[in-house]
Each structure stands twice: as C-alpha cells, then as structure tokens.
Simulated scan of single mutants.
Amino acid sequence: MQNIRVERLSSVTETLVSDLTNLLSELSETASDLEIHVLKGIINSEPVQIFVAYDDAIPAPAGMLTLVCVTLLSGKKCIIEDVIVGTRFRRRGIASELLHSAIVYSRTYGARYIDLTSRSERVAANELYKKTGFIKRQTNVYRRILLEKLDL
C-alpha cells in the first residue's frame, strides 16, 4: 500500500489550482474551472476547510474533500462536500483518510454532527460512508437552482 497523506490546504499555486480543477471535473461535468484568487479566498474563509490527499508515489493530488463548519442557533455542525478521489487512485484508502481527517477536525471544532449527501448511483461511496459510521437519514433534500452554471 502506498503512503497516503492528507493535508489541510493552507496555500495555493497555479499547479494546485489546475490539479484540483481536474479532480472537480471527475465529480461534476458542470464544474467551473477554479481560479487562484477564488481558491485563496476559500481557504482564507474560516468556515471552509479543504483537505487534499496525496499518494506519495505521485506529486499531484489524489483526492480532496471540502468541509464546511458553522455555528448556528441549534449548535455547531459540519457538512462534507465535494468528496473526490481521482479515478486512477481509487480503492487505495484515500477517501477513508480524507473522511478521517474531516471527522477529526469536526470533533476539534466541537460540532454536534457531520452531514453529507451522496447520489444513490455512487454505490461504493455510499458503502464507504456507512462503513465510516455515517447513518443514512430519512429526509428530503430540496434544491432550488439559482444559476445554471456558477462561474467563480
């Protein structure tokens, strides 16, 4: 097994922006290309943490996860978004390491819970979430489209 390390993003380069844009395109065909000033703004935003996983055999990011932590009237909570592992890196434990890092950070933050959503056709991802201790909730998720494609 390769050596996997997960880092919380604290700085940005043009190369990293390009690498993360490539990862995002594997998650969504409609994802806009990232721009360096936007990514810098995100990582300087207190509620948002981006975790990037690396397989030490290859310098490019193998996966990423976005964690949003907020304090609401009902208490502190975190939401996991944009969990992506590059196609060529799957089945190596990278997503598990990303989730573990997000869980540790969320506990440190003092969150009561972490939410995430996943499309039902992502069978392997859904199994991993259950195996990692996430419980499928019986709830309705609603979305209202405000823009067809968000240009960041």
Rank of each mutant, 00 (worst) to 15 (best):
G93K: 10
F134K: 03
A111W: 03
Y113W: 07
R90Y: 09
R137L: 10
Q138H: 13
R119W: 00
K130Y: 02
I114C: 08
S106I: 07
T108P: 00
R119S: 07
I114E: 06
C78W: 00
R90K: 14
Y142R: 07
L99A: 08
K131N: 13
R122E: 02
K77E: 11
A111N: 00
I114N: 04
T117P: 01
K77H: 10
T117E: 15
R144T: 05
R91F: 04
R112F: 06
V83G: 00
G110E: 04
N126I: 02
G93Q: 07
T87G: 15
V104S: 05
T139P: 00
V141Q: 08
Q138D: 13
T117H: 12
I79H: 02
N126A: 03
S118R: 12
I79G: 01
Y109E: 08
T139H: 10
E127F: 00
R122P: 08
T117W: 10
K77D: 01
K130L: 09
R137Q: 15
S120V: 10
T108L: 11
E121Y: 11
T108C: 11
S101C: 06
Y109N: 08
E127N: 03
S96I: 08
A102S: 15
D82F: 11
G93N: 11
L98R: 05
D115M: 14
D115L: 05
F89M: 09
L128V: 10
D115F: 08
S118H: 05
T139Q: 13
T108W: 10
G93P: 07
